[in-house]
Amino acid sequence: MVIGDIRELLDAECLWDHDHLNTKVDGAFGCDLMSDCLAFVDERIVLLTGLTNPQVIRTAEMLDINAIVFVRGKIPPQEVIDMAKDMGIALLATKHTLYTSCGILYSNGLKGISIGGME
């Protein structure tokens, strides 16, 4: 699935004018806990979260995540958007909840990751 598909499926808006709509993602991870994201994410995924603080962008940076979807209508502060822009991380915002967003993406073929790293 490409980021443009995710935007369409979640009726999401792009928070900055990026050129990632054709960038492919292999899976998705939905979480408000960045600690777990750091511990479990191995693949090139899209992160869905309701957290909007700068550490969400930092977490994505460390994990080479290139797209984040903010759920529940949350919009991060401008300095957080600017940070993502500097790093080239695509930001989308949807009014759907985390559960609904994940459900829509999953039923359209975007799978979750397997938890293996911490065993």
């Binding site: 806990l33 960045m34 600690s35 777990d36 550490q55």
Partner: peptide
């Protein structure tokens, strides 16, 4: 803020 899950050191 999304941290403190007890996963950091492991």
């Amino acid at each position: 803020l999304g941290f403190g899950a007890g996963m950091g050191l492991p």
